[in-house]
Design a protein around this nucleic acid. Structure first.
Lengths: 345, 345
DNA sequence: TCTCGCTGCGTAAACGTTAACGCATGCCCC
DNA sequence: GGGGCATGCGTTAACGTTTACGCAGCGAGA
């Protein structure tokens, strides 16, 4: 039934075969394949031609067994693969590629906790190090234990329980302050927040930035102005509806990510209000779609690709045994002014 | 400067060390670690306890060198990681996990074509097989060549040039017909299409489905009603604007993916028209956000997780040397009725 | 002509693990 | 009490590649 072609029936080429075809020893083929070692140019060319013709590729396992590095970095991520991960992984890839490293994607589906622990136990040491992109304090215990034993590890976007574990993230606190400061400058005096998931580090930090920014100008705090969301569009819509039901709705809203900001936008328009005339909105993240909402969303940009790049670079240093200049790196956010913010009515 | 802990300074544990600690030979430790082989329960327990205490993990390279399989599947994907990939990879993961396989993510950034070829040449055979998620006929030549040589390969969502290469995708053609048939049943007689990227297989097939559905009921075709997009929100907005500028705009629009459908929604609302009263919209994909647009989007659901699962399962069969029941699998789409379609005015 | 040094290549150990093989040991059954 | 068999474990070859070492051949300088 199968149409699978098998010109050389199941027999894969080894370096020995290439050596035989070239009439040399395996050592010489190895020298031709690598750049180092003394070899006559003519011999090298001949061998490489045969390699090209036969399509010979070296066995990675043997290679890394003798080289004592696998050239693989594992990237641990929670089950959801979204814009956030998409951007970060791009940066990771940019740093890893030139260094000759590949990405082993490890998806941690929540209901596999036990199986995961088990797998962690039995896990062969496949990679030279790991990048953790798990926003919450999920049960990454096994990996942290490995770290204690010298397994290179960098955490992306949240501080792990162990302060010794290197991490890199955007400055959520500063970013939130930037957002609120912008609204204050425009003259807004009634600014609400739709928070992110407060079980995540980023969610707590953004809320803290919002509060500090208001406290700094001596603004009164009303409990009503803090509505809890969880970063999902649905939670953003719900939160916005609650804010609109207030006797005196806010003139500006800081939504802690772009998904919730977009949902809030829709709710406001549905209610017959105009943006930014009636209500101003600031988001957070600057996801690709933020420039394409109507009106285009003013938001705080996280340099997600930089985050990935920096984290990967730090990991490569750890793998090479080099000391880290900085164990915890915080990258700057930037306010991106578009059209959802304006003067209060 | 580094805070990296190194309790056992750079010395990783080997099976020999465990054997010494347990007072047995390496063979016995191996038998304790694997399930097979004759070993006294007491000895096994003692060894496993030591493994647990020391945190010993076996060297993956040595393991796969002797076992002649790496337990890794490479997933090749273009640079953009979006909802589409996010869903497919979930299915892939579901199939691969239980089988003990990991995912090696290979991001093919366009401007690295040459480097990629080079890397392909030098590439160590890291994985047992590959899954290709590249919508266009990009230069996947090197991998296809490997396939000719017996490297297991499955293409996701487009037929490769070589009909012998196994593939799996949704039935774009049937899905498009479903969408248009639904609009016809509602009574629409002026139905436009915003096409996807016509350099992609999916884009061409969806257009074909639209045309056939109309031809089947003998509807006249107007060139004006086919507006070319490229799956991006921006192209969807542009296309919708062009359609609205027509003397007699269509009463229904089939947008070839959800991104463009959402953008079209915004454009229509901006123009002061009501959905679905003035214009009906059908999308394609059923991405997570489709249920959260206002109004919620009627769309054609692609079973993306199933696609991933099926492709991965086929690949595992190939790796195991089992014949494939079906070389090209087409999965059914389903119309998801929400609130953007209604009777024509 | 002899020696020295360099060049090109073959040889074999090493990387860390598995699994086939074989050898004690102890038990059962006749 | 002895033959046979099952059990538990040690020994070692093998997996495919790199690399340190060593040796032959050759050209150059004295």
């Amino acid at each position: 039934m199968s149409t699978r072609p098998q010109p050389e029936p199941n027999e894969r080429l080894h370096i020995k075969d290439v050596a035989r075809l070239a009439g040399v020893s395996t050592g010489t083929v190895s020298r031709a394949l690598n750049k180092r070692g003394r070899i006559a140019p003519a011999t090298r060319e001949r061998i490489l031609r045969i390699v090209e013709q036969t399509g010979f590729v070296r066995n990675a396992s043997a290679l890394s067994l003798v080289g004592s590095r696998t050239g693989i970095v594992e990237v641990v991520v929670t089950s959801v693969i979204d814009e956030y991960f998409g951007q970060v992984i791009l940066g990771i890839n940019q740093a890893l590629r030139p260094a000759g490293y590949s990405i082993l994607l490890r998806l941690h589906v929540p209901d596999e906790e036990r199986e995961r622990y088990y797998a962690g136990q039995l896990s062969r040491r496949t990679a030279d190090g790991a990048l953790l992109i798990v926003p919450k304090h999920v049960n990454e215990g096994e990996l942290l234990r490995q770290y204690q034993r010298g397994y290179p590890l960098v955490v992306v976007d949240h501080r792990s329980g162990d302060p010794a574990v290197p991490s890199v993230s955007a400055s959520h606190y500063e970013g939130a302050r930037q957002a609120v400061a912008h609204l204050l400058e425009l003259g807004h005096r009634h600014i609400a927040i739709i928070t992110g998931d407060l079980s995540e580090h980023s969610g707590r930090e953004r809320l803290r930035g919002y509060r500090e920014a208001l406290a700094q100008v001596g603004m009164p705090r009303s409990g009503e102005d803090v509505v809890e969301g969880d970063y999902s569009p649905g939670s953003g819509a719900d939160a916005m509806r609650r804010l609109l039901r207030q006797a005196a709705p806010p003139t500006a809203v800081f939504a802690c990510n772009d998904h919730m900001a977009r949902a809030a936008l829709d709710v406001i328009k549905e209610a017959g209000l105009a943006i930014p005339r009636d209500i101003s909105i600031v988001g957070f993240d600057d996801f690709p779609f933020a420039a394409a909402t109507t009106p285009p969303l003013t938001t705080v940009r996280q340099p997600l690709d930089d985050i990935g790049r920096v984290a990967a670079t730090m990991l490569l240093d750890l793998i090479d045994g080099q000391p880290l200049a900085d164990t915890h790196v915080r990258l700057q956010t930037a306010l991106v002014l578009r059209s959802t913010t304006g003067l209060p009515r």
